[in-house]
Design a binder for these strands. Structure first.
Lengths: 244, 244
DNA sequence: TGATACATATCATCCTACAACTTACCTCGA
DNA sequence: TCGAGGTAAGTTGTAGGATGATATGTATCA
């Protein structure tokens, strides 16, 4: 229970709230690329906070490449292509459609990465993956633990590709999905237990051991479609259903 | 020429430098997850800047989920899988190996997305893609313009998938690659002209028009492997070469 | 007219002060 | 001795003002 509290405990600090407000205004199109933001002083008056708070908020947006501040002139909204970071709005994930899209992206990333992992994995990778698999179905089967193991399983496979960017991207997407499901479980007691299909994981692992890229990719694809279904999201993937 | 200056003009502000320093220290493992950062005062003394600057730097790291600050206690390094944002170190991309990995990720993302786009595109999407294609080979063939069109071409295809996350991820990865190549061109006059293969793009476009998912995926895969080769990166993709 | 100097607006940085929160220690009473 | 409660110190969060750096517009003057 304390784990939950710790996981939630993201205190809403003032700079965070100001940044979120401005961020939404930009994403929603109320502030178009090229538009100039109000001055720091105007913002501090508008939100009723000190200029320091405004500056911390702007520092964050600037680091993300959402705005560009120029000394003596002001701060301007940048085009979406110029973003220096990818950030996913967790509020938006409460919408099932968005969840579906995220699962689709995950499937694309993980399926082909599984094929790469099958071709490149070494014994150390296999050991790590096996360890996660064991934890998943093992005695530590209280919910948080097995979900952690599930995520670790996927991360270790991503690591076995030897490509750190793939690892980063997959970890990130999986974590967003995990957080969103975690939240949904808390607000909707019906989904109290998240069912983890161990069989699907075993098939992926076996394909990796065999070094069979095609089988690994197919197994991963089937697994993610299954995982999506189990949380109430049905994937409209073209490939997943028929091809191959 | 002014375009270049505008593109480069990322002023190194003090908070940015402090954030970069701490970020590297975390990524490199000198500060492990769970470790506590020095206090704001200590950091401000160490870097010779005001506490305000340190706070802006920390605000950025916190927004990225790299650290967690708790009032009255201090700031602590979070585990990599808790990151709230994906950010790519542009310095690291000067290493060809990293560039290769990024191209590999791009290939995974774009190949399958091209298949999705072929299945879901409507006439509006095709028009936008065609417009980018025309700009690429058209009269506006000075370097910056055709590179912009190239990127736009890929972004429009991503948009045709109807999945905003796919669009975001692909835009981001392409932009990182573009920036890195841009930089390489400036420091190495040998690669002054970036060759853009229009034929490869046309084949992708034709597959999209035909609604042929398999052909679109194959064409996209071939194109990205080709593009990587033209900037001196050879992709070791398993699928790209042989498997159909 | 054209160029220079000045005033203004804005961001960048610094400084100090206080509030809110946590921890550790210390005192005091049973 | 031991426990409860309070106190002090340390740390982050927020406020507000002061000064430097930079860009823009304006007024002055040759």
């Amino acid at each position: 229970m304390k784990q939950r509290l710790a996981a939630i405990g993201t205190v809403e600090t003032l700079p965070h709230r100001v940044a979120a407000f401005l961020s939404r205004e930009i994403e929603s199109g109320e502030l178009n690329p090229g538009a100039r933001l109000p001055t720091e002083q105007e913002l501090s008056e508008k939100f009723g906070v000190s200029r320091n708070v405004v500056r911390e908020a702007i520092a964050q947006l600037r680091a993300d490449g959402m705005i560009e501040a120029r000394q003596g002139i002001g701060a301007f909204v940048l085009a979406p292509e110029q973003r220096a970071a990818i950030r996913i709005d967790r509020e938006a994930l409460k919408d099932t459609h968005n969840m579906e899209r995220l699962f689709e992206l995950r499937c694309i990333l993980e399926a082909e990465s599984a094929a790469l992992a099958a071709a490149r994995r070494n014994q150390g990778h296999l050991d790590s993956i096996k360890a996660a698999l064991d934890r998943m179905g093992g005695e530590e089967r209280w919910e948080e633990g097995s979900i952690d193991a599930d995520l670790l399983f996927h991360r270790e496979i991503a690591r076995a590709t030897g490509n750190s960017y793939i690892h980063t991207f997959i970890s990130f997407v999986c974590e967003q999905i995990r957080h969103s499901i975690h939240y949904a479980r808390m607000t909707n007691p019906l989904h109290d237990l998240v069912e983890i299909n161990v069989g699907e994981h075993v098939r992926i692992y076996q394909a990796l051991v065999a070094g069979d890229a095609e089988a690994a990719e197919a197994a991963m694809r089937a697994h993610i479609v299954g995982a999506a279904n189990r949380v109430g999201v049905k994937l409209p993937l073209s490939k997943a259903g028929g091809a191959k």
